[in-house]
């Protein structure tokens, strides 16, 4: 079977700086993969390349057997990749419910005229969107906060809302950029359970960036380690923990 996502020899230059070089990653259908590395290693750059925010200087990225190089972010989302952001990017002045509703956009079938005249598929589809949105919020323990303004949520809840919103786009591949940042150990533990559960329930493939090693080592099946834009190691959590290159990258030492 072909991998769901495959990046081969991807290079991204910012002026003279090689943010990512000779980047090779593959994700099989249904896997849960971690991407780790010290600050500034190029992890978020890799996410931005996968989602069309940046275009690779050279190299190829294939999703579901087709190249996604050159597509705009919204086109990539429509193909089935959804993401969350490291620095939370919610629609902060809107209600929690509206944040999720917006993400259903691509799956709405009614047209402009039906919406304005409130005829045809409008009423039924809007009701369905509301029901599905509340269902998603329930999974992420946000249902009782559905009508609150998103910016007033506590930090951990905002991170969960970002995941709920990404799921509303009905992706095949979910990219999570530091989902546990700012969470306490208990919240992180809950998040881990949640990520495991949604993967099974929504039949997802997940790639996540995370600094919290308990989370990464706890749930990821394979891990890629980035340093200065290069992948220095790749393997199961046990292999990564004992890899001398990785230990050197994180703790320093003679190389």
């Amino acid at each position: 079977m072909k991998p769901l996502l495959k990046a081969s020899h991807v290079v991204e230059m910012f002026g003279g700086l090689k943010a990512v070089s000779d980047f090779n990653v593959y994700l099989e259908q249904g896997e849960l993969i971690g991407l780790i590395g010290p600050n500034g290693a190029g992890k978020t750059t890799a996410f931005n390349l996968f989602t069309g925010v940046y275009q690779p200087t050279s190299g190829e990225i294939e999703f579901d057997g087709q190249s996604i190089v050159g597509l705009a972010p919204y086109q990539i989302t429509q193909r089935g990749i959804a993401r969350t952001f490291q620095n939370i990017r919610l629609f902060s002045e809107l209600s929690v419910l509206d944040n999720v509703k917006i993400a259903f956009h691509d799956h709405v079938k009614y047209g402009l005229l039906e919406a304005v005249l409130r005829v045809g598929r409008y009423t039924e589809e809007e009701r369905q969107i509301e029901r599905d949105s509340l269902e998603l919020l329930k999974i992420f323990h946000l249902k009782d906060k559905a009508y609150e303004t998103a910016k007033n949520l506590p930090y951990g809840a905002q991170r969960r809302l970002e995941i709920a919103r990404a799921l509303a786009a009905k992706p095949k591949l979910l990219l999570l950029d530091e989902p546990a940042a700012g969470m306490n150990p208990q919240e992180t533990q809950e998040l881990m359970e949640m990520i495991r559960w949604i993967r099974k329930e929504f039949n997802l493939t997940i790639l996540l960036i995370e600094h919290d090693m308990s989370l990464v080592m706890g749930i990821c099946e394979r891990i890629y380690v980035l340093e200065y834009g290069h992948i220095i190691a790749h393997g199961t959590p046990e292999e990564i923990q004992n890899n001398p290159e990785v230990i050197r990258a994180y703790l320093g030492g003679a190389s």
């Binding site: 993400a103 956009h105 919406a115 304005v116």
Partner: peptide, 30 residues
């Protein structure tokens, strides 16, 4: 017309652009 427009998925897409254009794009909104 405008009331119904802003209360539809099309209007929500417009409001999403106002709130955060990058996130709107990442949610599949052209």
């Amino acid at each position: 017309f405008i009331k119904n427009f802003v209360n539809s998925t099309h209007g929500r897409a417009c409001i999403a652009i106002r709130e955060n254009e990058i996130a709107a794009g990442a949610m599949g909104i052209n």
